[in-house]
Amino acid sequence: MKIMPCPLNGPRNISEFVHGGEVRDMPNPTTCTDREWAEYVFYSDNQAGIVTEWWLHAASGYWFIAERHTVTDEIIRTYDPSEIFNQRVEFSDETTAKEVGA
């Protein structure tokens, strides 16, 4: 069994984890094009090499970030998302109005 080091719970069997997709910067939803938004929501790079991904430890409901080599499947580092996401993202009213009107 492969072992994933969870930042909260320590080493656990990989079967306790769920992959959550690549970590990427969110474009500004009020100014970006539909194409850019679709890129963000639906498409993945699938690159060969080291990628930064979301993972969920299902037993504790804990989301964290892992750096993983997609060729060797080696897990290089795992860490709490607060290292990257340290402030709340607010969505303006303008965004809501645009979505409702669309």
Partner: peptide, 8 residues
């Protein structure tokens, strides 16, 4: 917090 008999 782990899996016991495949149950969280």
């Amino acid at each position: 917090q782990t899996s016991v008999a495949r149950v969280n």
